[in-house]
Structures are given as C-alpha cells and as structure tokens.
Design a protein around this nucleic acid. Structure first.
Length: 473
DNA sequence: ATAGGGTTAG
C-alpha cells in the first residue's frame, strides 16, 4: 500500500499509513526514503534517515543508494563522504549499487580521489560501474581520463557510448561528441536526444534540426525530451515553419504532453514571432506552472505588448503562483519596452513583498527603463546607488540609451566602463560612432573606424527575419 | 515489497 502511494507521488497518504504501521522493517523505511527522493525532497530523506537510525534500524544497500542519490545537487551533498564512511563501517562499500551511487556523489562534490577510491572498492564491477566512472570523470572535466576509461572498459553498451558523447557535450566539445556519436553502431532515443540537445546548448540550431530529421529517417521514435530540445532549436533559429511542423509531429506522435514540453511549445511560438499562437496554446494548458507563466510574460514583453504582459502577471498572482526572480526580469523588461516607468518602479519595489532580492539583472532592467524613456540622469543615478558592482549589461543598457538619445558625454562614460570590463566590445564602437555621426562629427567617426580596423574589432553579425530575401528558413 | 549508469522548459 505504501509503495502504491509512493509510486503515485502521494506522499501525504504514504506518510499517514507508514505512521500507522505497527511492524516496520527496513523495507518499509526504504520505501518511504525512496518516496521522498522521488518527490525531490532531500531534507525529508535526511530527516527520515536520522529517524530510522534513532529507532535502531540498520541501513542496507538499498537505504544507502537511495539516500546518496537524494542528496545529489542539494545542500546535503556535503554528507557524501560521511555516508561513504558509514558504508565502510557496514561493509557495504563493495556493493555495486552503493558504489555507483557513491561515485555519482563524489563527482557531484568535485572529489576525484573519492570517485576513484569508491570505484576500486567495488567487489564485482559491472558495465554500470564503469559507465559511472566515465560520467564521473566527464563531470569533473577530466576528458582524457574519461576517454581512457572508456577505451579500457571490459565491455561497452549503448549507455557507455551515450555517456561519452554527453560528457564531451557537457565540456563544450561538440565536435568530439559528434565524432563519437558517428562511431556508434546502434543508437536509441537517449543517444539521439543527447546529441540534438548538445547542438542546441551550443547554439548550433540548424545542426540540431538536421540531426532530428536523420533520427526520424533512422526510424527512432522521439520522446518528450527530444521534442522539447527540437522546439528549442526552432525557437533558437526563429523558424516558425519548422516549429509548426514539430508541433504537429508532437500531436501526431501521441507522446503525452507534460509541463516542460508544453512550455517549450509556448516559448517556441513566442520566439518565432507568433505571439497569439503562443498565447492560445498557453491558455489551453491545464497545468500552468511558474515556468510557463514566465514564458508567456516574457513573450509578451519581447513583442512590446507591455500591458498584456502585466495582465498575465496579475492573473498569475490571482492563480496563486508565486513569482520568482525571472518573472520580475520579464515584468520589468515589459515595462521598459512599453515605456511604463511608474509601473516599472512599482513592480521593482514590490519584489520584497515576494521575498525576492533584486539582482543585477533587475537593476539592468531599471537602467534600461529609465534610459529608453530619456531619463538618463535618473538611469545614471540608479547605477551609482546599486548595491553591487554594475556589470557589462548594466553599462550596456546605459550606452544603448545614450545612443537612442544622442548623449555623447554619458555614452563615453558608459563606454569606458564597458571597456574596463570587456576589452574591445564591438557594441561600444558602433554606438559611439553612431552618436558622433548624428552629431555630424565625421572626423571622429572615421577615427573610430580606423581604430576598429587596427584593433581587429568586428561588428557583431546581425540579421532580421522581417522581409528577409531568404524567406523563412 | 525497496536500489545503481545516459536525455527536456522560462
């Protein structure tokens, strides 16, 4: 019964039943631990483990591997070496299960010595243990070691290959990843998805889409992970036609739509310029979460529809969804693009009510807000009163505003600060020469162009899909 | 009856 509740993520019911249970054993405790792990509640796992020990139960292999997995990426991962010590005392460190969990744990805290030590102690190492070693080395950025382990493994399965590909991708070595991927004798939905999302993460959207077509031709059925990455690729290269095709394939494929996939659809339509399609799909979603709300608010903001962005924000609050820092970045940028100064100030000040501390991004939005509206002194004052060091984005917002309102003096101040933080940023040259051009100071403009040539500064490539002679790619 | 290695969103 408890396991049934756990499988359906009904932890409250599981908990109640567990409390009533008269003769608990290790298995019942492990089932509860696993439930807290599945519902991503590391603190509950921690408390449950402590309680279990307090009433005198001895952890077994199951207990330790669940607990270690639950501590990954949480504050409790400082306990990895303590759990390891515990495992040694119970002679469970030689278990394949505990061993591979511990390896992930050590990789998670960046401890290479621990990773190797645990691997050596595993009595009968199987493919999974070797795979965990490859992934562990990759996670630590040790690509040579990972490749060495892969080459030395007694046997390799599709997971070993996929781990290697994924490892190279995580280390931003997309070409190495692709060359390993090409050598695979068989591929499954995991391997295809890893490679496709790797291209997306590295902004190679066309490569991602090309590979997706290849995947379909090879007869491999995409899942919600794949589709979500592919939609991201469509959004990345602003290809509405491709995005629509992918959306249709999702509907035809019959993969159950989840929150993440739906949010990717919303985001794709918004980034491909069809904000109404984004909105109507968003409206049709039965379960809107924080990320989906942020996505539609950001979509309206980017389309300059400030009022509609703010309406969605208010609706989100009414729905009882708590905004986070990203929500406010989107809300403030909506105000900036819509010239809604008073509203921007109101929302900026309301952040404390939601216990969200304004970060450097929010300050950048405010500088942008004042700057676009021509209130340059106010923007400058805002920068001076910031509780942290302004970054390139903050100064860039001011510089952009100076370009918009042809203010050379303040523009030069911003430009100098940007150059200190990031040498030879092309935007600095373009913006200053733009202002000088407007002031008809042609000698300065020419001087700047010469300077750019000398310093080998290249203007950033920019293009627009609006009335593009190439049509929609 | 409970456990380990590879993939997704703002």
């Amino acid at each position: 019964m408890i396991n049934g509740y756990v499988k359906n993520h009904q932890m409250q019911h599981a908990h109640d039943l567990f409390d009533e249970m008269p003769m608990k054993d290790v298995v019942s405790w492990n089932t509860m631990l696993s439930g807290f792990h599945k519902t991503k509640n590391p603190e509950a796992v921690y408390l449950c483990l402590v309680q279990m020990r307090r009433v005198g139960f001895r952890p077994n292999e199951y207990t330790l591997s669940i607990v270690i997995s639950a501590f990954l990426d949480s504050v409790f991962n400082v306990l990895v070496s303590q759990i390891h010590a515990h495992a040694v005392c119970l002679a469970l460190n030689m278990s394949v299960f505990v061993g591979s969990a511990l390896m992930r744990g050590y990789a998670n805290v960046g401890n290479q010595v621990g990773l190797c030590r645990v691997f050596e102690d595993i009595l009968v190492k199987d493919v999974t243990s070797w795979n965990a070693l490859v992934s562990g080395y990759m996670e630590l950025g040790c690509m040579v070691e990972a490749q060495g382990v892969f080459d030395a493994m007694p046997e390799r399965n599709i997971v070993s290959w996929t781990s290697l590909v994924n490892g190279y991708i995580c280390n931003k070595r997309i070409n190495e990843a692709r060359s390993v991927f090409n050598k695979m004798s068989e591929r499954n939905v995991f391997s295809w998805t890893v490679m496709i999302s790797g291209y997306v993460q590295n902004q190679k959207f066309m490569d991602a889409l090309e590979l997706f077509i290849w995947m379909l031709k090879s007869g491999c059925q995409p899942n919600h992970f794949t589709f979500s990455s592919v939609l991201d690729a469509c959004a990345g290269c602003s290809s509405l036609i491709m995005g629509q095709q992918v959306h249709s394939s999702i509907l035809k494929s019959g993969v159950p739509g989840d929150d993440i996939l739906s949010t990717s659809v919303v985001d794709m339509y918004a980034k491909c310029g069809d904000i109404e399609a984004a909105f109507s799909f968003f409206e049709s979603m039965p379960n809107k979460n924080l990320v989906s709300w942020n996505s539609i608010i950001g979509g309206f903001a980017r389309h300059g529809l400030a009022i509609r962005a703010l309406e969605e924000f208010e609706r989100m609050i009414k729905f009882g969804v708590r905004p986070d820092e990203i929500t406010f970045v989107n809300v403030l940028s909506a105000c900036g693009h819509g010239g809604l100064i008073a509203e921007g100030e109101k929302y900026f000040n309301s952040m404390v009510e939601y216990t969200i501390k304004a970060g450097v991004e929010h300050y950048a939005c405010m500088v942008d807000l004042y700057g676009r509206a021509g209130k340059l002194e106010k923007a400058e004052k805002f920068i001076k009163e910031m509780p942290f060091e302004p970054d390139v984005v903050v100064w860039g917002a001011l510089l952009g505003a100076c370009g918009l309102h042809s203010n050379l003096e303040l523009g030069q101040v911003a430009a100098e600060r940007i150059c200190k933080l990031k040498n030879n940023h092309p935007a600095v040259y373009s913006m200053l020469s733009k202002i000088q051009g407007e002031k008809e100071e042609w000698s300065s403009v020419i001087e700047f162009r010469e300077m750019m040539k000398e310093r080998h500064v290249k203007k950033q490539k920019a293009s627009s899909w609006v009335e593009s002679p190439f049509g929609d790619r």
